Computed example of a mutant assay.
Amino acid sequence: MNSVTCLSMAGLTAVTFLWSTPALAELPEPVRAMLDAAIATGDESKVRTVAEIARTTNPTDGQEIDAILAIFEAEVAARRQAEAAEKEAKIRSASLFENWAGKGEFGAFRATGNSSNTGITAGLTMNRQGIDWRHNLTGRVDYQRANGVTTREQFLGRYEPNVNISDRFYAYALAQYERDRFQGFSGRYAISGGIGYQALKKDDIQLSLKAGPAYRITEFVDGRSESRIAGLVGIDFDWSITDRLKLTQDTNAVAETGGSAVAIIDSRNTTLDLITGLNATISSKLSARFSYAIEYDSNPPPGAVQTDTLSRVTLIYDF
């Protein structure tokens, strides 16, 4: 017997009880009308509040009120289960190009480190949520040009699919491209794969951790090229402080090992990208975001400094 059948039987039992117990006093018409009006709204909290008031003001009719409430709750549960089943069926039958959602971001930045300037920033994030699989696409551009000279030109592209192994664990893959001539490289490519863990999974707070081996190729502006084995560690933290305010913390660290265990301790180049952001909802589709990023290279190319910082103020549109 499935859960929908059980819920329907629960509602039927409540109706049978309501009509087959002659000892119950008849619920006054104004009270019944008040309950019917609350039920018509479909608002569960409102229905329970009205039912509690009715039970308090009409203590002798408590059983009848409970029976009416049981019918309503059974109908709500059955409707929710039907909606969830319909949603799952649509996800399973969708093609690869369907069920994508995204965010477009545009604003200004202030940079310090290898360049000190103010410019424009734009970003695009796309994600597709399946039953077991998730796909995430990210692109970002920071650009500034003054007096005919480009003083900031940073590009980032990332694709990360992952699949659930259990309720908490998942496997991930990652392909990433970066370009920043002012940090000393014309192209940096990384691929990685490993295991992730959803440490916190609540409505208002989420924390996930991931780690795995990686392989990275760096093409420097002076024409040199390096290929190295690496290890990746990632942290993703989101906290909805209120309905309109959300704190995010994203950290990705990549340590190039040089191929031996000793080199992991004394790595040739460790990079760290740490981004802290605060999102404020303006409307259902629009939000404002302030973020502060630290980009660290332990062994930058000659003439470059180790640490860059980037402050961004942007508007985000959900679609």
Rank of each mutant, 00 (worst) to 15 (best):
L137P: 01
N299K: 10
Y296T: 10
A173Y: 07
I53E: 05
R228M: 13
F185H: 10
T218E: 06
S166Q: 04
R168Y: 14
A293M: 15
S186T: 09
Y170W: 12
V233K: 01
P213F: 00
R145G: 03
D318C: 02
A280K: 13
D61P: 01
S225Y: 05
T5E: 07
T276Y: 11
A33L: 13
R110D: 04
R224Y: 00
K103C: 03
R289F: 01
D236Y: 08
F72M: 00
L310R: 15
Q206S: 08
A111M: 01
F220S: 06
A82Q: 09
F319L: 11
A10V: 09
E73H: 00
I294M: 07
I229W: 14
G123I: 13
P161N: 08
E75D: 10
S260T: 14
Y189D: 04
A211T: 11
E226R: 12
A54W: 10
W133N: 06
L209T: 02
D238P: 00
L209K: 00
V313Q: 02
L272A: 07
K87Q: 11
I282E: 00
G194M: 12
N269M: 04
G42D: 06
R179V: 10
N117G: 05
D142S: 06
F155T: 13
G277L: 09
Q249V: 14
N58V: 11
A171Q: 06
D204C: 02
D266W: 12
S166E: 05
R48W: 02
T56D: 04
V313I: 14
R134G: 04
T251Q: 08
Q176W: 07
T309W: 03
R179C: 01
